[in-house]
Nucleic acid binder design. Structure first.
Lengths: 171, 171
DNA sequence: CTGATCTCAGTACTACTGACATTA
DNA sequence: CTAATGTCAGTATTACTGAGATCA
C-alpha cells in the first residue's frame, strides 16, 4: 500500500498507441495488460484488508469454499480443482490455515488415500468476519465504482473463462 | 499448462449464489474473483508463450517499455513508476535481463545517483520476436474471443484503474 | 541536512517439477 | 498393474521491509 503518485497519463493507452504504430494491432495487448494491472491493484487492496486476520486472498478463498460446502469439509484434491490451484499449493495453504487452527485435517472415512479438510468453529468465525471486512472495503474496488460496470465486467470475464475452459460452457 | 478438466458448472456463479444467500450482496465478490481467475489463466498462457525466449511477462513489459522510449534507455526509478513495481523488483528484473544480455546498466550522464537501463541490439530483437509470439497467441486470450468484448473490457477496466488513481482521470 | 536513487539481505507467498509412499 | 492422493525437496518469481551507501 505504498501510495504512489498517479501518472499524468494512462500508461496502457500510451503503450497501445506506440504498439499500434510499431508492432501492429494492440487491442489484445491492451486488455491483457489492463487485467494484469487491475488484478495487481485489487490483490494488494484485498491482502491489506485481510492481513490483520492473518489471511491472504488465497487462504480466504479456501476458507470460503469450505464454509459453502455441505458438511464444512472437503478432500484436498477437490479443493485444488475448485480453486484452480496446484496440489502442492493446496498442501501449503492448508498447512498455514491449520497452523492458525482455522481448519483441521481429518482422514476420509472410506478412502484412506484422501485427506479431508474441515473448518473449525474458529475458522468459520474468521471466515465470516473476513467476508464482512472485504464487503465493507468492496474487495478493493475504488469507492464509487458503478454497479452497472461491475455487472458488465463480470459478464465479459465470464465469456473469457468459458472460452478458456474454466468451466463447461453449457451451464 | 497442466490442462485441467473443466468444471461442470461456473464456480464463480455458484459461489455468488451461496454468498448471496448467507453473506449478502455478492456482486463485488464476483467481479474481483473473476478478475483474479482470468488473470491467472492469462498469466499462465503468456508465460508459456514467452518461456522459450527466457522471458516472463514482467520482463517482457520492461523490455517493451525500453523499446518504446525515445532513446532506448530509462532510469530504474522511472521504470518502476511506469510498470507499477517495487524498486527492489526493478533491480531483480533488470538483473535477469542483464544476465541475458538484453539490457545493459549504464551511468546517468549528469545525475550520478541514477542508473540508466539501456536496451541492447539483442534485447530489441528479442522484444520484437516475443511481441510477435504474443500477438500470434493473442496474449493468451481464448481463440474466438470477440473483439467487441475486448474493447468493452478494456474500457471498463480503465474506469477501475482511474478510480484507483492508477493515472490522472483527466487524460 | 533532507530527500532521491539503487542495492542487498532476509522473509513471505504462490507455482511448478520430480520423486515417493500409500492406497483404490 | 494402473491410477489417484497427498507430501516433500528444491527451484523460480515477484513483493515487501529494513538498512545502508551514494549523491543532488
Amino acid at each position: 500500500m505504498t501510495s504512489r503518485a498517479p501518472l499524468p497519463f494512462d500508461p496502457i493507452a500510451e503503450a497501445a498507441r506506440l504498439w499500434e504504430r510499431e508492432l501492429g494491432p494492440a487491442d489484445d495487448m491492451a486488455v491483457v495488460t489492463s487485467i494484469m494491472r487491475v488484478q495487481q491493484l485489487l490483490q494488494a487492496a484485498v491482502d491489506a484488508t485481510l492481513k490483520p486476520r492473518g489471511l491472504t486472498f488465497a487462504r480466504f478463498e479456501a476458507l470460503t469454499l469450505l464454509m459453502f460446502s455441505r458438511s464444512g469439509a472437503l478432500p484436498m484434491a477437490k479443493m485444488g480443482e475448485r480453486l484452480m490451484i496446484h496440489p502442492t499449493s493446496v498442501t501449503n495453504i492448508v498447512d498455514k490455515l491449520e497452523q492458525g487452527r482455522l481448519v483441521q485435517r481429518t482422514p476420509h472415512p472410506t478412502d484412506r488415500r484422501t485427506t479431508l479438510v474441515r473448518l473449525t468453529p474458529a475458522g468459520r468465525r474468521v471466515a465470516r468476519a473476513a467476508a464482512a471486512d472485504l464487503t465493507r472495503d468492496r474487495f478493493g474496488l475504488p469507492t464509487g465504482t458503478d454497479p452497472g460496470a461491475v455487472h458488465a465486467l463480470t459478464a465479459l470475464l465470464r465469456e473469457i473463462r468459458a472460452g478458456a475452459e474454466d468451466f463447461a460452457p453449457d451451464d
